[in-house]
Nucleic acid binder design. Structure first.
Lengths: 159, 159
DNA sequence: TACAATATTTAGCTTCAGCTAAGAATCTGA
DNA sequence: TCAGATTCTTAGCTGAAGCTAAATATTGTA
């Protein structure tokens, strides 16, 4: 865990107030998008491996109550990401599928990057869940470069 | 880092419901800690470069209203992280300083890692704000290894 | 010293994500 | 087929994080 011989104090410059405020606003925005992305991503994910996706399945996967899922799902229906059909399996709209694919892309890339870096696959999967919503396209590109560089040598993949 | 050669589709296995639920709970826990860590980290950070740290300074830095900061600060006073003194500058308690140092350590490590990976320093700083609360110790250690490996060659540092 | 300007806090509102408990719909098997 | 079990939704609550507007403190200066 040693780093370069940096100056006596471990603190470089403080960002300007404007940059700080901008960065924190970005984080708050990401938090607002997070549930939406998690839900459509999970629906798409489960749809790959089972016939029906039900609110109860999401409740189990997210570790929350059925009522909570129903409420969130109703919002997503309102946003036009899930088709409206009470008591029926959850089906993504075209728009929902698009967001799910984009989220999935980020998820897989972040996870594969962490694994390529030497992180245990289970831990990589866990950390990815929190990280994926906060990684810019630029950083994602840097992750991709690193994974590509490594895969010249070894064939990676996991979880 | 080797695992089975998975099928053609870009999707490896789906985690078990238990793992999924556990991971999402971890993310929700991290979100709850996030404001606490951001506040004490910011107070410590500003205290390095200016005489007084005021609620108005935090409001400016976080891009929120003064009233919001006052409310959050009162909670942190209740948690024993900030000394109680209305209308006075904000001062961390011993406990608050400990959390601030730990948060700062993660922040600096994540940021330096992204920079070492080739991400633009401003973007690294922005992404770090969202990422830092979601990185496990294991992943942090992998980041540190990578930075150390690189710093044998180049002298990095930034923002 | 007292008044105006500035800084901080309080009051009261909104939205969001979670919960439990109870009611409504669906499914299943005797 | 219909009764019981299961699943899903509704109703109504809590707590967190944000807001604006109004009240209160502090500070600086005439």
């Amino acid at each position: 865990m040693e780093t370069k011989p940096h100056p006596p104090c471990p603190y470089p410059d403080v960002p300007s107030a404007e940059k700080h405020a901008h960065n924190f606003k970005r984080v708050r925005d990401a938090h607002r998008r997070e549930i939406v992305e998690d839900y459509v991503e999970m629906i798409a994910e489960l749809a790959r491996v089972q016939d029906d996706v039900r609110t109860s399945h999401l409740a189990e996967r997210f570790g929350v109550s059925n009522a909570t899922v129903t409420n969130r799902v109703q919002r997503l229906v309102g946003d036009g990401l899930i088709e409206d059909a009470p008591y029926q399996p959850l089906v993504l709209t075209e728009k929902g599928r698009t967001i799910a694919q984009e989220s999935r892309r980020r998820h897989v890339l972040v996870r594969d990057f962490l694994i390529a870096l030497g992180v245990d696959p289970d831990i990589a999967e866990a950390d990815t869940e929190g990280i994926e919503h906060h990684v810019s396209e630029e950083t994602l590109a840097a992750f991709a470069r690193f994974v590509d560089r490594g895969s010249a040598a070894t064939e990676t993949t996991a979880i």
